Simulated scan of single mutants.
Amino acid sequence: MPHLPTNPAHLGRAASASVEPDFTGPDWFEAYAARHEADGQDGRLVSQFAFSESWDSWEMHPHGAELVICTQGACTLHQEHADGSTETVTLAPGDYVINASSGVPAT
């Protein structure tokens, strides 16, 4: 049985879905991109991660929005929007926020 923290899922074109190989760390993403290159910006990765300490880096998604869901505990996100404004959002279990990409408004 796939387990989301171990085996992310891919949602592709034509409403397809697939179980991905074991997540092994940052290099895994390169192989994922190669496997699903044909889906282009229509492909979506569904993954779940646990964090026990604050990140010391940031990330961005220039080609699509990101849905962040808190499943346990709480998390605080510091967002910088395309217009340069910033926002701090704290999530509790079941809460979610959409990190919009440039040109993709959150709705």
Rank of each mutant, 00 (worst) to 15 (best):
M1L: 08
M1G: 02
P2R: 13
P2V: 14
H3G: 15
H3T: 15
L4C: 06
P5L: 05
P5D: 02
P5F: 00
T6M: 13
N7S: 08
A9M: 13
H10Y: 05
L11Y: 08
R13H: 05
R13I: 00
S16E: 08
A17T: 09
V19Y: 04
V19E: 07
E20C: 14
E20K: 06
P21C: 10
P21D: 12
D22M: 12
G25S: 04
D27N: 05
W28C: 01
W28T: 02
F29Y: 13
E30H: 07
A31W: 06
Y32F: 11
A33Q: 09
A33E: 00
A33S: 05
A34N: 09
H36W: 04
A38V: 12
A38N: 13
D42S: 12
D42E: 12
D42F: 07
G43E: 08
G43H: 07
R44S: 02
L45A: 07
S47K: 06
S47E: 10
F49D: 14
A50D: 13
A50V: 12
F51H: 05
F51I: 10
F51A: 13
S54K: 03
S54Q: 00
W55K: 10
D56C: 11
D56Q: 11
W58N: 11
H61T: 09
P62T: 05
P62G: 05
E66K: 09
L67F: 09
L67S: 07
V68G: 04
C70A: 13
C70R: 03
T71W: 03
G73V: 14
A74Y: 10
C75E: 06
T76I: 06
L77D: 01
L77A: 02
E80K: 09
A82I: 01
A82T: 02
D83M: 07
G84F: 04
G84W: 00
V89N: 01
T90F: 03
T90C: 04
T90G: 00
T90I: 06
T90D: 06
A92I: 02
D95Y: 00
D95W: 02
D95I: 00
Y96W: 13
I98H: 00
I98A: 00
S102C: 13
T107V: 15
